[in-house]
């Protein structure tokens, strides 16, 4: 509160703003400040020398991380749901395997671990959907966001970084700890595997974010963008290998999946964890991830440029 008052009373051009205060004025979005103040902050930024983008990026990510940390009840509930569904998936796998030992290169232990990893990345990659950007378009906040001295994509990337980190720690790691406690799961052995896993996790997050960003841009065109989102996220559940390991599918359908960016979001990471991808195949998978990131981000930029021209802000 005190901060807001200070903010309002200072004249625009007194030049006594510290860097910290200016950062604060840009990350207003993570606090509830009146609309007047938002406008004020934006005007002010235009008049002063620019703040390094990297600094802004990390500040936004940090704020988003802190905010996400405060949603304790939601985290707990989400965790409980992931564990319950994980339990169901394990039962399905056990029933499917029956007496069989190895199917498509995976034994039951690997299949059970697969279900755990699937549940663990739900929150991290927002697999069930992410509509924050759409909401900001319908509420009009997008106007101020587009004026920020930080690219629109990078702005949302920073916010999603904070969110994803919390989700990774509190939902992802925790789910795997529970799995390790209740079931006999696989863990990567070699240092190289852990390194590759870390790279794949980061890449899968960037790719999933770019995809979610692209889908959300539909809101620049239609007020019914949520329907577009449901569809786009829905097909990803199956094609990414989240619902069932892609290895269980017939070869022709696997290759069909690999013509889309979705396997690079979930399946690749899990297969690296399980040690199913090794050597050259692993390196290739990482490069495929990179390729899809480049393609999707390029698409994001194109679509964003077209969308901004179309966008009409309804009131304020």
């Amino acid at each position: 509160m005190l901060y807001n008052r200070q903010f309002a009373l200072r004249p625009i051009d007194d030049g006594r703003w510290t860097i910290e205060e200016r950062v604060q004025s840009i990350v207003y979005r993570l606090r509830s400040v009146s609309y007047y103040h938002k406008e004020f902050a934006v005007n002010l930024q235009a008049a002063l020398p620019p703040i390094p983008e990297v600094r802004l990026f990390w500040e936004l990510a940090r704020r988003s991380f802190q905010r996400q940390m405060t949603y304790r009840a939601a985290t707990l509930a989400g965790l409980a749901t992931n564990l319950f569904f994980g339990l169901l998936r394990v039962a399905v796998m056990v029933a499917l395997y029956g007496e069989r030992t190895t199917v498509a290169g995976m034994n039951l232990q690997a299949a059970i671990t697969y279900t755990g990893l699937g549940q663990a990345v739900i929150a991290f990659l927002s697999i069930f959907g992410w509509y924050d950007l759409m909401r900001s378009v319908s509420s009009g906040e997008v106007a101020a966001d587009l004026l920020k001295p930080l690219g629109y994509f990078r702005f949302w990337l920073a916010l999603d970084l904070g969110r994803a980190l919390v989700a990774f720690l509190l939902r992802g790691v925790t789910v795997m700890l529970f799995y390790a406690f209740f079931f006999d799961i696989i863990t990567p052995v070699t240092l190289w595997q852990w390194t590759a896993l870390t790279i794949a996790l980061v890449l899968s997050w960037v790719l999933s974010f770019a995809w979610r960003f692209l889908v959300n841009l539909a809101a620049f065109w239609t007020p019914n963008a949520i329907g577009v989102g449901r569809f786009a996220f829905g097909i990803a559940w199956v094609l990414s290998g989240f619902y069932m390991p892609l290895r269980f599918f017939p070869t022709w359908f696997q290759s069909f999946c690999h013509f889309t960016p979705f396997p690079s979001m979930v399946n690749t990471t899990i297969e690296i964890y399980l040690g199913l991808l090794m050597g050259p195949a692993l390196i290739q998978a990482l490069f495929v991830q990179l390729f899809w990131i480049a393609v999707t981000i390029l698409a994001c930029q194109r679509v964003l440029r077209a969308g901004v021209h179309r966008l009409v802000i309804q009131g304020g």
């Binding site: 399905v92 029933a95 499917l96 395997y97 029956g98 069989r100 199917v103 498509a104 019914n224 329907g227 577009v228 449901r230 569809f231 829905g234 097909i235 559940w237 199956v238 094609l239 619902y243 069932m244 269980f248 599918f249 017939p250 359908f253």
Partner: peptide, 29 residues
């Protein structure tokens, strides 16, 4: 109409992948 169509496609994919999996395993319990 679009919404019903899109959720229909999503569900079809789910069913298809279940069918594929059972094709490989034969039965579930």
């Amino acid at each position: 109409v679009l919404e019903i169509l899109s959720s229909g496609i999503t569900l079809f994919l789910f069913f298809l992948s279940m069918a594929f999996v059972l094709q490989r395993f034969g039965d579930l319990g």
